[in-house]
């Protein structure tokens, strides 16, 4: 589905080159829920942006659905959810969801159908005609997810979508996201800096470290796909969380120079 091999990415800045990604390799299979976790500066967002063709790697090879990322972008193979909901203030919730459909040239009836479908999916029924400022932060982010789902790409890339929300709302949205993933069978790549969030959501956890940005551990989760919030008290959950924490710690102390 998504294959990243030996990717290096160096940004030229005024303070000299910054090694944002070094020798990153990763396979994501169809239907996976993959989390990228690490401290800021570890390149987790950059990696997601490379997959989305928003950044170009300096070296290495990336394929998305057997295409180079830029072709995959043009073929609209993925939906991208940003850190900020980024809804258009002059459009209602349904107007915002229709925006990518308008850009992609869907017919009016198809726009209606798809909008209704994704509004059901994120449970925003009754809020179609509200403007973004009339919604809470959590609801705005749900609308933003609905918008990314509207054109039915089979990959969903999410860059800390719940980072700005409080823990209670975040827990609920995590549950809903898992549910949505279960029902749609999408492949999801999810950037986060929260260990419980990463362990709870993922089938595969990619632990990353900064300076240079690199992968220190890839954990295949033994947790069942069908899980609820209570699983966070189970032994397995705690063991995985421990391994993630170890991976993050190792990245900090490891001497890379």
């Amino acid at each position: 589905m998504i294959s990243v091999s030996n990717v290096n990415l160096t940004f030229e800045t005024n303070d000299g080159p910054v090694n944002a990604l070094r020798d990153v390799s990763l396979e994501v299979n169809e239907g996976d829920f993959v989390s990228f976790i690490g401290p800021s500066g570890c390149g987790k967002t950059t990696l997601l942006r490379v997959i989305a063709a928003l950044e170009t790697p300096t070296e290495g090879k990336v394929t998305v659905n057997n295409m180079i990322p830029d072709d995959a972008r043009k073929a609209r193979e993925y939906g991208y959810v940003f850190q900020a909901a980024g809804l258009y203030p002059w459009r209602t919730v349904s107007g915002n969801i229709k925006l990518p459909l308008e850009i992609m040239g869907y017919s009016a009836s198809e726009k209606e159908d798809r909008t209704r479908k994704v509004i059901d999916l994120v449970e925003l029924n009754g809020f179609e005609k509200k403007f973004p400022w009339q919604l809470s932060g959590g609801m705005q982010q749900r609308a933003s997810i609905a918008r990314a789902l509207a054109f039915d790409a089979n990959i969903l890339l999410m860059d800390e979508p719940f980072g700005a929300l409080d823990e209670i709302v975040r827990d609920r949205l995590n549950g809903e996201l898992l549910n949505l993933w279960g029902r749609t069978g999408k492949t999801i790549c999810f950037v986060t800096h929260s260990i419980p969030e990463a362990v709870f959501l993922s089938t595969k956890i990619v632990v990353m470290s900064p300076r240079p940005g690199r992968i220190t551990d890839i954990i295949e989760s033994p947790l069942p796909n069908n899980r609820d919030l209570d699983i966070r008290d189970s032994q397995e959950f705690i063991k995985i969380a421990q391994r993630v924490r170890e991976g993050l710690k190792a990245g900090q102390t490891e001497d890379v120079f």
Binding site: L54, R73, F82, E102, I103, M104
Partner: peptide, 24 residues
Amino acid sequence: QIQLDQMKTWSASSNQILWHLRFP
């Protein structure tokens, strides 16, 4: 930048970006 990146992920043309985003 987020709004412009978002338009890019939908591979919107520069006319569409102008009409739907820049002009409003």
